[in-house]
Amino acid sequence: MQTSTHCLTIGEAEVRKEFVADHEAQAAREWACLVLLAEHAPGLAPRPLRWEDGPTPVIVMERVPGAPLGPQPLGPARTHALGDALRRLYDVPVAAVRDAGIGLRRYGAREHVQVMRDWLAEDTDLGECRGPALVAEALTAARAYVADPPLPEPRETALGIADLNPANVMWDGRVVRLVDFEDGGLSDPAYELADHVEHLGSRLPGVYDAGALAAAVGLDAEGRERMAAYRPLWAAFWLAMLLPGNTAWRRNPPGTTEAHAGHFMALVDAH
């Protein structure tokens, strides 16, 4: 199975993950996360078996039971199980994360605003859009939003997975396990959950219910407010990804960009 960052070879008991060239940092980050979780949250993620040096880095890990979540709402049982898994992840001691040499997650709360300012500043030809006027309106709103976003101060109090695409959530009928930590690192649980519920792969099929997942993880009222405050930033990220020529534009059917533009503006109007 080939992706943009790695190639997976799945055996009966082992999974071999070979990273493409220039992705040594992602490989080292994932290896460090898996080693840390094997000690502090055993069974939550694949157990790391060996690191193979070569032209490109390779991680070999155990194959965990279960199958990836499908593109449909989780329901109460699986939401509760996912909340338990994320709570175990967030309960890993921060001191242990730092001692393992694991830094901030990719696109962390402190860097993401500037990343979005740079991305959204680029000129884009919207002629291929079904509703160019709507997308242009959303782009104007997104640029204004990231210029001075009303975001809470991040609290890097937990290890986050960063990418909770449903394909990275393994369900065996009883327990949830998590895979793919190449972008993981220190993060804010409220920021993580905002990322997860706004991920296009989960939001479009309605996999994660924002309120139910926050409750399952155990966010208090303030945490839920902070999660809601971060959601427009991630919606702006996906708006940029859905512009003509970008990855999500190519992967999704016509009309997705326009629908997401409406979603983004609704989130901004709510804040």
Results as ranks from 00 to 15, higher is better:
Glu225Asp: 14
Leu86Ile: 09
Leu89Tyr: 00
Leu200Arg: 06
Gly43Met: 10
Asp91Cys: 10
Asn246Asp: 11
Gly255Phe: 09
His80Asp: 13
Ala167Gln: 14
His199Asp: 15
Leu267Pro: 00
Glu62Ile: 09
Asp84Asn: 15
Leu243Cys: 10
Ala162Gly: 00
Leu193Gly: 00
Leu219Ser: 01
Ala67Asn: 08
Arg98Lys: 09
Thr256Cys: 07
Glu14Met: 11
Val146Asn: 00
Ala259Trp: 12
Pro46Lys: 02
Val169Asn: 12
Leu219Ala: 02
Pro55Val: 05
Arg224Gln: 14
Ala142Gln: 03
Leu134Gln: 09
Gly131Arg: 06
Gly54Asn: 05
Arg130Ser: 13
Leu242Gly: 05
Pro73Gln: 13
Asp84Ile: 14
Asp91Lys: 05
Arg203Met: 08
Ala216Thr: 06
Gly173Met: 14
Ala228Ile: 04
Ala25His: 15
Asp22Met: 10
Leu36Trp: 08
Leu193Asp: 00
Ala240Arg: 14
Leu82Arg: 06
Gly43Glu: 14
Gly101Asn: 12
Leu86Met: 08
Phe181Leu: 08
Ala235Gln: 02
Glu258Asp: 04
Val64Lys: 07
His23Met: 14
Arg117Val: 06
Ala215Gln: 02
Met241Leu: 13
Thr140Met: 11
Pro232Tyr: 03
Gln72Ala: 15
Asp99Ser: 12
Ala38Pro: 04
Ala266Trp: 00
Arg50Ser: 06
Pro46Leu: 01
His112Glu: 15
Leu243Trp: 06
Ala228Val: 09
Met116Asp: 00
Asp195Trp: 12
Met1Thr: 10
His260Pro: 00
Ala210Pro: 06
Gly75Asp: 09
Gly101Ser: 11
Ala248Leu: 13
Ala147Ser: 13
Leu86Trp: 01
Pro46Gly: 01
Ala248Phe: 12
Val97Asp: 05
Arg29Pro: 01
Ala235Val: 00
Ala221Phe: 14
Gly223Val: 02
Arg105Ser: 15
Asp183Ser: 08
Val207Gln: 10
Glu14Ala: 12
Leu37Trp: 00
Pro253Leu: 12
Gln72Cys: 09
Leu37Gln: 03
Val179Phe: 01
Arg203Gln: 11
Val92Asp: 03
Pro73Cys: 11
Pro48Thr: 10
Asp180Leu: 05
Ala81Asp: 07
Phe181Val: 03
Arg110Ser: 13
Asp188Met: 09
Asn165Gln: 11
Pro244Glu: 15
Gln114Cys: 09
Ala21Phe: 02
Thr257Cys: 07
Gly206Ala: 11
Pro152Ala: 03
Glu18His: 10
Pro55Ala: 13
Pro244Met: 15
Ala28Val: 07
Leu193Val: 01
Leu219Phe: 01
Leu82His: 07
Glu39Phe: 08
His6Ser: 15
His6Pro: 08
Ala158Phe: 02
Trp51Lys: 05
Leu186Arg: 04
Leu164Gln: 02
Leu204Phe: 09
Gly201Glu: 05
Ala228Met: 05
Gly43Gln: 09
Trp51Gly: 02
Asp118Arg: 15
His196Gly: 04
Glu137Gly: 04
Ala13Ile: 12
Asn168Gln: 10
Ala32Lys: 01
Pro150His: 01
Gly245Trp: 06
Ala236Thr: 05
Glu52Asn: 00
Ala100Asn: 09
Pro68Phe: 11
Asp180Ile: 08
Val58Phe: 09
Ile161Arg: 10
Ala109Leu: 04
Arg29Trp: 02
Asp118His: 14
Glu62Arg: 08
Gly185Thr: 01
Glu258Ile: 02
Met170Pro: 05
